[in-house]
């Protein structure tokens, strides 16, 4: 009997505690309360935005990976016999990135302020710009323009469904969107786009300089002694361009430092080629070239800074 009693006491002693802990959030959630109702709305709005942000980060990461691969591929131009084959392959890769990845971003950004989400997709975008500008340099020895890059990132609406842009269809869509009370330029033209802010373009282009430096060194190894001088000339122009900017962000300043380092390396390489080029057999030049770099140990430095 005594035993049973104490068992009861035991149970009662614990039960209330457990109960009050569980059922006692300070105010039991009253779904009718206007405060709670308002917060339910805020909740869904925040969730929608956070989800979108996460999706964009994911796509951006994929773009970064694919762009890096394209850049590696392009670096192989130096040692390869058929430049055009590498270029074709790279062109196709870039197009794939546009058609499978950027189109997703464009869809996510429809009706949105791109600047709100730029932090989510900026890393991928910059890496992609680097890849495109590198591709363009190898192809035409020119700096790709912002306009050209932006042009590639404008897609017809609903391109994922493979529908051609039918004007009648479009008019309908514009109308239905008008009821949504949004009319941006893109809707009137029936396209969606990934907006490329000029600053992102410049940051991407700044990364190009590191790749160009690598290209210059690699091509000496492959026996092409003109490329370092071309690259050197190109980098000098870019450097003076970057140097001229006023009010730039910290990012640009940091990248300008990397640019200066790359330029120094290429200039040293050109110097070595000029001074000793005639007296050393071609296949030994690479070894000679790599020695001054290890003095300033820039190559490895730059690789880590480039990430």
């Amino acid at each position: 009997m005594n035993n049973v009693n104490s068992l009861f006491m035991f149970v009662f002693a614990f039960f209330p505690v457990k109960r009050s802990r569980k059922g006692e959030p300070k105010v039991p959630l009253d779904e009718n309360s206007p405060v709670i109702q308002a917060f339910r709305l805020y909740q869904s709005e925040l969730d929608t935005r956070h989800d979108k942000h996460e999706r964009l980060v994911k796509i951006s990461r994929d773009i970064t990976i694919d762009s890096k691969r394209t850049i590696f591929l392009l670096q192989r131009v130096a040692g390869s016999d058929s430049e055009s084959q590498v270029l074709d392959e790279a062109a196709e890769k870039l197009e794939q990135i546009q058609k499978t990845k950027f189109v997703l971003i464009a869809e996510e950004l429809q009706h949105e302020d791109p600047y709100r989400f730029i932090r989510a997709y900026s890393p991928g975008l910059q890496e992609y710009i680097e890849a495109v500008s590198f591709f363009n340099y190898i192809k035409s020895k020119k700096l790709v323009s912002l306009k050209a890059i932006q042009q590639d990132l404008i897609f017809p609406k609903n391109s994922d469904k493979g529908q051609p842009c039918d004007p009648e269809n479009q008019a309908e869509k514009v109308q239905s969107q008008e009821s949504n009370s949004t009319t941006s330029q893109s809707e009137q033209t029936g396209t969606i786009e990934v907006h490329v802010p000029p600053i992102e373009y410049m940051l991407g282009v700044a990364d190009l300089t590191g790749e160009l430096m690598r290209l210059a060194i690699n091509s000496v190894g492959a026996g092409n002694l003109d490329i370092p001088f071309e690259v050197c000339d190109f980098l000098r122009k870019m450097q003076s361009g970057f140097q001229s900017f006023s009010y730039v962000s910290r990012d640009v300043k940091r990248k300008l430092q990397t640019l200066n380092q790359s330029l120094r390396k290429v200039e040293t390489a050109c110097y070595t080629l000029k001074v000793r080029g005639s007296e050393i057999p071609k296949h030994m030049l690479v070894d000679v070239l790599s020695s001054p770099f290890s003095d300033i140990h820039m190559y490895t430095d730059d690789q880590s800074m480039d990430e």
Binding site: K141, K142, L143, S145, L146, G241, S244
Partner: peptide, 16 residues
């Protein structure tokens, strides 16, 4: 290529 590159940089400066 010279002029196109300098246009790119002057355009950007204008943007800034």
């Amino acid at each position: 290529s010279d002029s196109s590159m300098s246009t790119i940089f002057t355009d950007f400066q204008k943007y800034l």
